[in-house]
Design a binder for these strands. Structure first.
Length: 221
DNA sequence: CACCAGGCCCTAT
DNA sequence: ATAGGGCATGGT
């Protein structure tokens, strides 16, 4: 079986098991973007609390969020941790967004290659965050790689490259440019990783067990 | 009590 | 070029 075939097979199995995930859990592109920054190394549960604080103050809005103080923002997003850092990062993003008059359309009209370069220049937005924004806020066909992705496919014995961009290129080349597929695949990887693949897995009932080198090496017998 | 969570930046070798 | 530390809350 080729790597490409295996990738597609794993996707089918995940989809059959979990069904559609309806990502990203947000109402609009701006909420996706804020969530993408807030969820850096943080459980989504905590991010939800922070986002709810912003919602109850009607602050899921670029212009309004731009006007409030960084320290005030930090207090509101406290539940998701790293709040001083993330407040700064959101402010950095808004400063960039202001150059486009906070206008979503002006951004969408750019090529996503160019847009990715610009996002990565913002201090506090790395590759995963940038790609999450590109895929889930703006629906560009960009495959999001995260630690779950690496861990899962390492265990599956895919022999992924180390470098982020190379991993991404591998998925995109294997799957073809397909925004809907990238959307669902990444969401399913996250879903599955939360359900089963903890660092010290206790998941002998995982339905991917037969695919998984990790089990074969460490848990057989 | 320890460890993890939908990363990223900075610094010292 | 790359390992290691800091950021910080809340859940198990």
């Amino acid at each position: 079986m080729t790597k490409r075939e295996k990738l597609l097979l794993i996707y089918e199995k995940l989809y059959d098991f979990y069904g559609p995930q309806y990502w990203w859990p947000a109402n609009n592109w701006f909420e996706v973007t804020i969530g993408a920054i807030l969820t850096q190394n943080t459980s989504w549960k905590n991010v939800e609390k922070a986002i709810n604080n912003l919602k109850s103050n009607n602050l899921i809005n670029p212009r309004k969020l731009y006007t409030i103080e960084k320290t005030e923002l930090a207090q509101m997003i406290k539940p998701c941790g790293f709040y001083n850092l993330k407040s700064e990062r959101i402010k950095n993003f808004l400063e960039w967004l202001k150059k486009y008059d906070f206008d979503e359309l002006k951004i969408k009209n750019k090529s996503y290659i160019e847009l990715r370069r610009e996002l990565l220049k913002i201090k506090g937005i790395g590759k995963e965050t940038a790609d999450s924004i590109l895929l889930y806020a703006f629906n560009f066909p960009v495959f999001v790689v995260d630690s779950y992705t690496k861990r899962l496919f390492d265990r599956l014995g895919l022999g992924l490259p180390e470098d982020y961009d190379e991993i991404q290129e591998f998925f995109e080349a294997s799957l073809g440019k397909n925004e809907k597929l990238y959307n669902e695949y990444h969401a399913l990887i996250v879903k599955h990783s939360k359900e089963f693949c903890k660092k010290k897995p206790n998941c002998f009932d995982c339905f991917l067990q037969s695919e998984c080198n990790f089990y074969k090496k460490e848990f057989r017998r």
